[in-house]
Amino acid sequence: MISERMLNLTVIGGLLAVALAALVLDQPFTITLATRVAILSLAAVGLNIALGLGGLVSFGHAAFFGIGGYAMGILAYHAQTYTPLDLGLFTVAGTKSMPVIWLVAMVLSALAALLIGLLALRTSGVYFIMITLAFAQMFYYFTLSWSAYGGEDGLSIYIRNGFPGLNTLVPIQFFGICFVILCAALYLFHRLEHAPFGLALGSARQAPMRVETVGLSPMRLRLVAFVLSGAITGLAGALFADLNRFVSPTMFSWHMSGELIVLIILGGVARLIGPVIGAVLFVVLEHYLGGMTEFWKIWLGVILLLIVLFARGGVAGLLSPRKVGHD
């Protein structure tokens, strides 16, 4: 058993150490794997705000991941083809600038989360799960037939987008960007968890009526959390698309939503470092077991089953248990 702070520092420091060791040992593919971990962690940190803090089991976070991905894909596509993006009333130029793409990805994801949240948060339990899934599937089928941007085949971006002062094609530099953003998101999650907003959100999950009687609206708390959550997952989607230099409708698929939930359950729901541990396990299993058998997800399923049955707090809960209060 170790303290939660030590566990957090070990995991995040370990991820950085792996990337730096791979740099020294000239293993660029390992750096790319570490980058994949950082991006998937970021997406799951976003979901963890809704799922972990707010108790909102969103089975449609792929919608935001995909919106972020397509925001990057569409803007970069118009930049690389030197064609303007026609928005009906006006046209805008594409861009290869990462900060601009991130901003667009976050704003669009947040807007989508606002609209989806306004409808979905009126329900709860299995209905909330189904409504969020339905929205993500709507985006999935829309992009599947969106021939202007590749439809089913997706959209390739030939050169990774740029960041001022860095060469993003160098794996360690792109990893650095993703790692810093992940750390910023983890810091935001930590601050949020202990801020009055996060405390009230967590309480609204357990006792919504008590929260109402102290003057806070559980619906509003959940909506803010859902929008924040969507924006962060959208940012991860833009980075994921940049990592692969490719976007396709699979970013919107329910498998993606499921994988994000699996990452959090593996690592530890509502735990700061849970999504990172989950992403590390997922990518390591995907890479090493995936190299041995095509059916590696069966083993992932077995591990998930064991975690759910014997470690309710995920791996983080196993290594650093928390006390839970009851009244």
Partner: peptide, 29 residues
């Protein structure tokens, strides 16, 4: 929640604190 915001503070029967939060967290939430 609007009633509470309007200025009515309720201490309900049975206390009903936020069990998982600390004393300070209950107050600042």
């Amino acid at each position: 929640h609007r009633v509470a915001r309007a200025g009515i503070g309720l201490v309900p029967e049975g206390r009903r604190c936020f069990a998982d939060l600390t004393v300070t967290e209950n107050l600042i939430a």
